[in-house]
Design a protein around this nucleic acid. Structure first.
Lengths: 332, 332
DNA sequence: ACCTCGCTTTAAAGCGCTTTAAGAACTCCT
DNA sequence: AGGAGTTCTTAAAGCGCTTTAAAGCGAGGT
């Protein structure tokens, strides 16, 4: 049941040294074509698979990227998928470490460090910049999704203000002028989006209206009820995230307010939620694949190409127009 | 930047052998209280952390549990969280391996095997039983969430028929008799739920009506539209999963059919979706924490207690009653 | 004194693979 | 032929930790 074949078994089977087998299996130069072939055949026959643990230990370089994530965050899930394929391409393994009830960010990071990951990719960390700084002294770090201005960490994120700006431009184009913003709470990301809204409204010569919110459907529902009841209702709402947007839409519809007939709604994240046929939410897409690609590249350029200077990659999000936005009803 | 202290550094710093340090750090019996203290102090001072890779290699036992999951499945996310805490308690590490675009179930499993995990926990695998059989010959396997009758793998799942039965009992109790079932498609799990529905309806002397569906909101929307338009509409619908249920509700509400006034809806999974205030869906809870606990225990009893006989743990799900169900309107 | 018996400590042998420097076997020149 | 080059192969030294058998060392017993 146990006893998987070892490198030396393959070597013995072929009649060459373990060294040769190791070289062949990793495609390293040296072994002749004939040796290669025989080793490969033997390995296949014995069903040999290298012990990752031993390889990792023996190799000078570990070629291991540690990823900290929250397994319950769908956006992280999307990122992880892409990180994997990108790491693969760059010749790296990925070790996942998720936050859990009894494993906070520090704990998750330590697990990664214990595996001697060569670099860390942190998805939307909440740690204060100072602790990131300390961490970055030990190992290259890439923060995905949020700012980290003063630390020695690389950052890959999306230009939140631009995203919000695109949403507003779309609405203004349609003829809206009373456009409210549904806030995403206290996080750094939410702040950036709020700021983007204020600026863009200001530039357009429109007056801003920010409604309190968070990052749950419930928050959206509360705001939606309020909107439905108010007399001087805006004709459009930009939400700081999709869940909020879904909540708003739901509350409006239940209150008999047509979307997009009477109120247009725009979300942010272009999550799978937004794409659902019956939700069909106009939303801002952050291009997870590109973020993942860049995060891996940032790590790899530090490790393989000796880059030492901090890098910050800001991607430009784009608006995906769907059915939750339309021209406002002409007023009488 | 690099060069983390090694075990030998700590040993040298204290003036004892590496062996002693190793023993102290793992809390093994032997070292005297004084040595213990000094080693611990030195380790703390140097900021020493053991290299997991080396430990794993040197240790005869790996104490590593491999978990295969789909990082995009929210139910898996919930399970992973619990698996972690449970593994921790049993003194095991967890290695995660997720399915990705270019990494199918076999690929994910091989990664786990390459780390020499001592046992595998497979969350809702789709592989045919035969390949599970082969896998189980190499390493203890625990399948979570679906049946795997003839294989030598352990199974932890929830009694789907019982769950559906509870939903029906609740509806019948409320006075419903025309209760339709919204099917979950072709999977093994969906089949079990459908069967549970048929049996329970039969037992209750009611006639069954199965509507086609899948595992998406869209499927639910389609069914909901159809229901809304039909003259002889059932007074209640049990859906094979929450996403379907949400879709149905959405379509019914938009078509002006009140839920639960005119039609009661029950979901399955008790996902976070169901718990949302504005959805407030009566649903069947599968107790993810218990499933996780049992999966880890199954693995651990095989590894640590030498259990050799196959085990199948079937948990009893329970209904969580919320606002989407009510007594049917009395007919005229 | 001599032995035995616990309690500590440690030398040394791995774990399974990678890597490097040196060796073996050939080929090619002059 | 002899030496310089090539090409392929391998012995041996790790990677950083764990484990085990054996060595030290006082204390207690006779």
């Amino acid at each position: 049941m146990d006893q998987r074949p070892r490198l030396s078994d393959v070597a013995a089977h072929v009649g060459v040294s373990p060294a040769s087998v190791s070289l062949v299996l990793r495609g390293a130069p040296g072994p002749s074509a004939e040796t290669r072939e025989r080793v490969l055949a033997a390995a296949a026959e014995l069903g040999y698979r290298a012990d990752r643990t031993a390889s990792l230990l023996a190799r000078r370089r570990r070629h291991l990227l540690g990823v900290m994530l929250d397994v319950r965050n769908p956006f992280h899930a999307e990122l992880v998928e892409e990180l994997h394929v990108e790491a693969d391409r760059a010749g790296y393994e990925v070790v996942l470490s998720t936050l859990t009830r009894n494993r906070d960010e520090d704990g998750a990071v330590e697990t990664l460090l214990d595996f001697r990951c060569e670099a860390l990719i942190l998805l939307g960390p909440d740690s204060p910049g100072s602790s990131l700084d300390k961490l970055a002294e030990q190992v290259p770090c890439v923060v995905v999704g949020r700012m980290a201005r003063d630390a020695q960490v690389d950052v890959v994120r999306s230009a939140d203000d631009v995203g919000v700006g695109a949403a507003l431009a779309h609405l203004i184009d349609l003829g809206h002028s009373r456009i409210a913003f549904l806030d995403g709470g206290s996080g750094a990301v939410a702040a950036a989006r709020r700021r983007g809204y204020r600026r863009a409204m200001h530039r357009a010569g429109l007056s801003a209206q920010v409604l309190p919110g968070d990052h749950t459907e419930e928050g959206g529902v509360r705001a939606g009820r309020q909107l439905a009841a108010s007399a001087e209702r805006p004709t459009a709402v930009v939400a700081s995230n999709d869940r909020l947007a879904v909540g708003v839409m739901d509350a409006l519809l239940r209150a008999g307010v047509d979307v997009p007939g009477e109120v247009s709604v725009v979300g942010y994240d272009d999550s799978t939620l937004a794409r659902l046929a019956h939700i069909d939410l106009t939303s801002v897409n952050q291009d997870a694949p590109a973020q993942a690609r860049n995060a891996v590249r940032a790590a790899v350029t530090r490790l393989d190409e000796g880059r030492a200077r901090r890098t910050e990659i800001v991607l430009v999000p784009h608006l995906v127009v769907r059915g939750s936005t339309a021209a406002p009803v002409s007023r009488t």
